[in-house]
Simulated scan of single mutants.
Amino acid sequence: MDQLQKYKSTDKMMDLISDNYALLQVMSRFGVSLGFGDKTVKEVCEMNGVDSRTFLVVVNFMAEGFSRMNTDDPDAISIPALVDYLRQAHTYFLDFCLPAIRRKLLEALDYSENDVSFLILKFFDEYMHAVRKHMEYENKTVFTYVDALLQGKVLKSFQISTFSQHHDQVGERLTELKNIIIKYCPSTASNYLLHAALFDIYACEEELESHSQVEDLLFVPAILKLERRVRNDEK
């Protein structure tokens, strides 16, 4: 598998960051700490208790937009490692990224004289609620189902195709908010702060889209295979 990938286990972790700093977010969600010197990807992953093959599948997917993973290789990806990565991504969006944008909007907008400012914040709060509902559903329902599959049990109340068919692209809903800010934001708003908040909204939208693609194109196919294997074992 290494020969097919852009980034390999023998590459220095520092070189990955130098080549694509956006991979810092992937490292964070895998729980990889900084301060690793000139160690390789494999060495850094081992230091941090991270499955290096799963790490490489995700970073290469993020870099290239598709997966070169051999779907016939049962060890190509660790489902527990991938689930943990997705859980940490949810924590990042819900507890850090979106609240940080909200704080910038609060600081940038003048709520004393303009109804548009209230509309912007109201829309953003509704969006945050929708994202939280979506991700908490995944945490409580989807990942619980996967945990049961890993123990050799198929829960009758759910199947992964349901998730696949109804998986919202939550990042798309930020488009309307961006348009409201760009077209109708009051002139009394703090220019620097509002531009910074809008930049963060664009970045968050891209990150949410990448997150959804990891779920749809890496996570769901892996769980479909696991689901079939467990169902066959039950027969």
Results as ranks from 00 to 15, higher is better:
A89I: 12
E227W: 10
N191V: 14
A76C: 07
R87L: 14
S28R: 10
K156R: 14
I180T: 00
A196T: 02
K133I: 15
D73L: 04
A197G: 03
C45H: 02
L109M: 13
K156Q: 10
L226P: 04
M69D: 01
A100V: 06
C185H: 06
G152N: 10
D2L: 09
V146M: 04
D73I: 01
M1A: 10
Q25H: 11
M47P: 05
R132C: 14
D19W: 11
L106M: 12
A222C: 09
L198S: 02
T91V: 15
P99M: 10
L82N: 00
A189E: 06
G35D: 02
R53G: 03
D95C: 12
E113I: 11
F55L: 02
Q88F: 07
I77V: 14
K122T: 00
R132V: 11
L208C: 10
R228E: 15
L155F: 08
D15C: 08
V41I: 11
L94W: 07
Y184K: 11
L106N: 13
N114E: 13
S210F: 08
G35P: 02
G37Q: 04
Q25E: 13
D38Q: 15
H166P: 01
S157H: 10
I79C: 00
R231C: 07
A76H: 01
H90P: 04
R229H: 10
A189C: 10
R29S: 09
E227L: 11
N232R: 14
F163N: 03
L150Y: 03
L86Y: 05
A76F: 02
E205G: 05
V214Q: 00
H129A: 13
K225S: 10
V32M: 15
I223M: 06
V26W: 05
G37M: 05
V41N: 06
K178L: 13
